[in-house]
């Protein structure tokens, strides 16, 4: 009798595990939980997920590479995605759906990872201190007129590393260095997170800060009366620096077919709507709708010339540059 029940349990669990995917994601749990559940309901494929810091997740995938328990690596910031692929952790995926839904500059050149949502790293101003129509750009903020008026997040956060990587890719190392040096020379105030940057701008400690759009969205939703507004930078030049959250299939994954299907689903209409909504990001799919708050920020020119794959390549240089100029 004992052996029979053991056997049936094993069979049951084996069956139950028949259709499932394992995702390692650095996204916050409450941002991905519901999307995963939706997929489960629709397809019956269970999504097992583990959350953690990108670096740690990458180390773990590396360790499992010969016999991976994980199928999909999902993270934010192209720098992290690039690093995973450069370490040989991601498969190159052939998928027409993915290549058509995800613009070329928002996915890996070799299709090892695909962006799934877009965020812009934009300038946000205190409406009492900065007039509408002021010409604003990342480069502009290095000029002495902005002395004492700039708030930034710490250079240690990967978002800023990618931003500086973008500047290096656009202007070359030396010019990018002088820009960042200009920020530092303007006695920039450093904060540990974007929300604190926004709070400081709202309080008047500085006139402008650089943050990701969704942080602005979250704060303004909680406190709509704050004197804050997005002022899209570089509209006259190459456009706002954008970044993605994205995913790729892990090399040697045991469920490549199912993983691909999942990624395709994530890049399609319904998922895109939910994905973007839950965190006030921009969908990767051009035809997917934005949330109202996001729409209210208006149209802007994004930087499409910079391929995010390069953000990863240049990350080390960016860290070096920031350290050289004393951007903490």
């Amino acid at each position: 009798m004992k052996y029979l029940s053991i056997a049936s349990i094993l069979l049951f669990t084996a069956y139950a595990q028949a259709k499932s995917l394992t995702v390692y994601t650095s996204r916050k749990e409450h941002l991905v939980k519901d999307i995963f559940k939706t997929y489960e309901k629709e397809t019956g494929v269970k999504i097992n997920y583990k959350t953690g810091k990108a670096g740690a997740l990458i180390q773990n995938i590396k360790a499992e590479l010969k016999d991976p328990k994980v199928d999909i690596f999902m993270t934010v910031d192209a720098g992290n995605l690039w690093y995973a692929s450069s370490e040989g952790l991601l498969e190159s995926t052939k998928s027409d759906v993915l290549t058509s839904h995800v613009p070329a500059h928002l996915r890996d050149r070799d299709n090892r990872w695909f962006g799934l949502s877009v965020r812009a790293r934009t300038t946000v101003v205190n409406t009492n201190l900065v007039k509408k129509g002021t010409n604003i750009s990342y480069e502009e903020l290095a000029k002495p007129e902005w002395k004492g008026k700039l708030c930034l997040r710490t250079s240690k956060k990967v978002y800023n590393q990618s931003l500086v990587a973008m500047l290096i890719g656009t202007h070359g190392y030396d010019k990018a260095k002088s820009i960042v040096k200009g920020w530092v020379a303007n006695k920039v105030d450093i904060f540990s997170n974007d929300t604190n940057v926004l709070k400081a701008v709202a309080a008047g400690q500085c006139a402008v800060g650089i943050v990701n759009t969704y942080y602005f969205g979250r704060l303004i939703k909680k406190q709509p009366k704050l004197p804050l507004a997005i002022m899209w930078p570089n509209q006259k030049s190459y456009g706002v620096h954008i970044n993605v959250s994205g995913a790729g299939i892990v090399k040697n994954s045991k469920h490549q077919e199912d993983a691909r299907k999942f990624l395709e689903w994530l890049a399609s209409d319904e998922a895109q709507k939910q994905f973007a909504q839950v965190n006030m990001e921009y969908p990767i799919l051009k035809t997917a709708p934005q949330t109202d708050i996001v729409k209210s920020w208006g149209e802007f020119k994004p930087n499409t010339a910079f391929n995010l794959t390069d953000a990863g390549k240049l990350q080390k240089k960016a860290i070096k540059l920031m350290h050289e100029v004393g951007y903490k």
């Binding site: 959350t51 240690k156 540990s192």
Partner: peptide
């Protein structure tokens, strides 16, 4: 630590590095 295995101290690190 293995990923996903957070303790109070590591959680505090994560939160304080974000200023929370």
């Amino acid at each position: 630590r293995p990923i996903g295995h957070d303790t109070l101290s590591t959680k505090i690190y994560e939160l304080t590095s974000e200023g929370e």
